[in-house]
Design a binder for these strands. Sequence first.
DNA 1: TCGATACTTCGATACTAACCGAAATAAAGT
DNA 2: ACTTTATTTCGGTTAGTATCGAAGTATCGA
Lengths: 229, 229
Amino acid sequence: MPSTPDISHVAGLLSDPSRSAMLISLLDGRPQTATELAQRAKITPQTASLHLSKLVSGHLISKEVQGKYHYFRLTDPNVAHAIESLIEISPPSEIYSLREADEDNALRKARTCYDHLAGRLGINLAESIVRKGYIDISNENYRVTDDGKKFFGDFGIDFVKLKRRRRKFIHPCLDWSERTPHIGGALGAALLDRITELGWIDKKASQRAVRVTELGKEGFHNHFEFSVD
Amino acid sequence: MPSTPDISHVAGLLSDPSRSAMLISLLDGRPQTATELAQRAKITPQTASLHLSKLVSGHLISKEVQGKYHYFRLTDPNVAHAIESLIEISPPSEIYSLREADEDNALRKARTCYDHLAGRLGINLAESIVRKGYIDISNENYRVTDDGKKFFGDFGIDFVKLKRRRRKFIHPCLDWSERTPHIGGALGAALLDRITELGWIDKKASQRAVRVTELGKEGFHNHFEFSVD
DNA sequence: TCGATACTTCGATACTAACCGAAATAAAGT
DNA sequence: ACTTTATTTCGGTTAGTATCGAAGTATCGA
């Protein structure tokens, strides 16, 4: 008999409405807490906890504990890919037409990394910051170095205010399209804010795409030592 | 409020070991009868009938009755794609016997991914086509170049007929054994058809694995400039 | 130190679904 | 017409699991 891989276990993890709702919520790449996901799935925290532990054992998601908050994310882009391929063969919901389903997909993608930089620019930025030693990625919890604190401070980012936010300070956010981590979390959001404030980028109206200004090209080159193509 | 797609029903259809075994058996694109599938899944015909009817209602497979035989097949390549993507995130199956190890090796070397080539052969083919500049992968929508149009035309692929189909022309399909994309979509299917027609490959016993013939070795070397292992 | 919040574990309930035996239906061969 | 083979339907048993209330652990803020 031929060696048949067993997809039934993984499929079983996806076959519960509560679990699939949580997984689809995680599709945007943003790590989310247990209660956040429980609300999405409209279930109690106890039930969510059970489901999330099952998903972790099945290696579909991974957990990172940050104080009393437990952040969950999809383990890798392959999981996102599998979920998206299941969405494709699932019948579109009754109320909406196929065209509207496409629009929903676009919306979901637009929500991706909605408050920090992704794409080529985000990755260049992340690489530059790591290369210059402002962030230490040697262990799993990324940490801002002393050099980094000085640099970001000079750049106009207020650390004290940032730390006070509940949100996880830095997290590597997987960009499904580029399959490379860039910088999300509070630091990512703060960087985006500051870069916008400096007029380095232009947000195109209601679009995910951003345009780097002439000022920005100069800025990225001078402060982060990479050139924008 | 964004409409959340519901993948749990489809995933539920894939979450039963018997059903997933039958679906994986159908991955090669060959229509199979109910009893044939029952044997694959090691269940009684009654139980298989129940499962198959559920899969039909869920639009994962379609049935065609020919006399007393009921032939089942996957409804479309998207279903095959979803199954492959689940194989990708499933833990590799334990190899029990030597025979199963051989089978596994054969699948990794060369197999069909529903209607196009996958495994190392599929990837070699894809790499060759990209290297020789026949398709342009610089932006997200892969495109056949002018050089490519000429090449594929000379190779015996009718573009006009292909384009008329509604199906996506080139689909980068992720390979579970190599974790690298190969060429799916209408072009991938046409390539497999033509390569089969030319007698470059032989379908093996398990139906999903393929063997490259001597003619094929020569052909891949002359037309695509890679050698088959 | 104390209370509030986030999360997990335990226990009990209720629901779903896979399974096979038995029997019905349908088509093929003789 | 009769037998064999392919498939489906029905009925009853069994096993697995999603769910929540209650209680326990861990962390944060005051």
